[in-house]
């Protein structure tokens, strides 16, 4: 039996989660929300996390009805992410690990998403589309590693959406992507936009520049903000589904798992499901509780590592802004 606590704060979400052998005991989260037109900066985000982390931690322990002694391993996000918020959260994780005298484990954020997705959906060996504000990767497991088949060659898909939301001054509450999704539902007219797929890689910076330059003139020509959101979503999601399908065909896989914050977009799920149906594959996706950054995904991935014998020395319990998914050896997977 392993009880693990996980601390996550690599971007604007701060979460602490507790898991006991795959059963989620608690998973509270707070989000740093900026005014419309603004993104979140490292310094302010770290301040937000410092302000809230103790109350979130307390909530996690209370909801789980667990005290420090019951925990077997303290897990935190080692990276990738923003430096200052990562460091803030790591310090708290190290402190409680010392206080409770428990081992500590740094977890790769992307691995956290993948393992949590597999746990919740029971997908066995899926081709994974990991889409968030900072990451866009198409991943498949082979030879003890999550291999990156395709990825963005510039900005992440969520970053493209967030920055477009700033152009239209769309609210960041609860998230810019959610609000774009709602507007897109009312979109009528499709505007052809740049479509950029290179093998299994994608690029979003061209389409973002196009939107940044043309938005005001498109609005004057009679297109509505809803039309713009609709066209942007249709185009970038088609790119993601296409490259995922290419990886799926290349790996002869029959399962797709979508993880990451953008993964709770229902239009993306609908498009992916349509593609899967056409080829007799199955789509697995989760809702906002687990798609969006949260503490328990770090706890779960950490527990898997811990169970399979991974340990971390104190002096290694650092953070890193760049930490690729394929750097981690998946000691916990037997296949």
């Amino acid at each position: 039996m392993v009880i693990a606590i996980g601390f996550e704060g690599s971007a604007n979400k701060l979460g602490v989660g507790i898991i006991k052998d795959g059963v989620v005991l608690s998973n509270p989260r707070v989000t740093f929300i900026t005014p419309p037109g603004e993104g979140f900066m490292p310094k302010e985000t770290a301040e937000h996390h410092r302000q809230h982390i103790l109350s979130v931690l307390q909530k996690a322990l209370e909801e789980a009805k667990i005290s420090g002694e019951d925990i077997d391993v303290v897990c935190y996000t080692k990276g990738p992410g923003m430096g200052a918020p990562l460091a803030t959260v790591a310090i708290v994780a190290r402190t409680v690990a010392q206080l409770w005298n428990k081992p500590i484990l740094g977890v790769n954020h992307c691995i956290g998403h993948i393992e949590m997705g597999r746990l919740i959906t029971n997908a066995k060996n899926p081709t994974v589309l990991y889409v968030s504000g900072g990451n866009t990767q198409i991943i498949a497991y082979a030879r003890k590693r999550y291999r990156i088949f395709g990825e963005t060659i510039d900005i992440a898909v969520g970053n493209c959406l967030d920055r477009f939301a700033r152009v239209l001054k769309i609210s960041n509450d609860p998230s810019p992507g959610y609000n774009i999704e709602q507007l897109a539902k009312k979109g009528q007219k499709y505007i052809p936009l740049p479509y950029c797929v290179k093998g299994m890689d994608v690029s979003f910076s061209g389409i973002l520049s196009y939107m940044e330059e043309r938005t005001s003139s498109l609005l004057k020509e009679g297109y509505s903000p809803e039309d713009l959101c609709f066209s942007l979503q249709e185009t970038i999601f088609a790119m993601l589904v296409e490259t995922t399908e290419r990886a799926l065909a290349h790996c002869n896989s029959s399962e797709v798992l979508i993880v990451g914050g953008v993964g709770c977009n229902l239009r993306l799920q609908e498009m992916m499901n349509e593609m899967c149906k056409e080829r007799g594959s199955t789509l697995f996706a989760t809702d906002e509780r687990f798609c969006i950054d949260n503490g328990v995904m770090i706890a779960h991935a950490g527990a898997e590592m811990f169970r399979s014998g991974t340990r971390m020395k104190w002096e290694e319990s650092t953070v890193t802004q760049r930490y690729r998914t394929d750097e981690v050896e998946t000691t916990w997977r037997e296949d």
Partner: peptide
Amino acid sequence: AIRARGRKRTMVG
């Protein structure tokens, strides 16, 4: 250079 771009890209979020 393209390879390094992939390795060094910041992955915030």
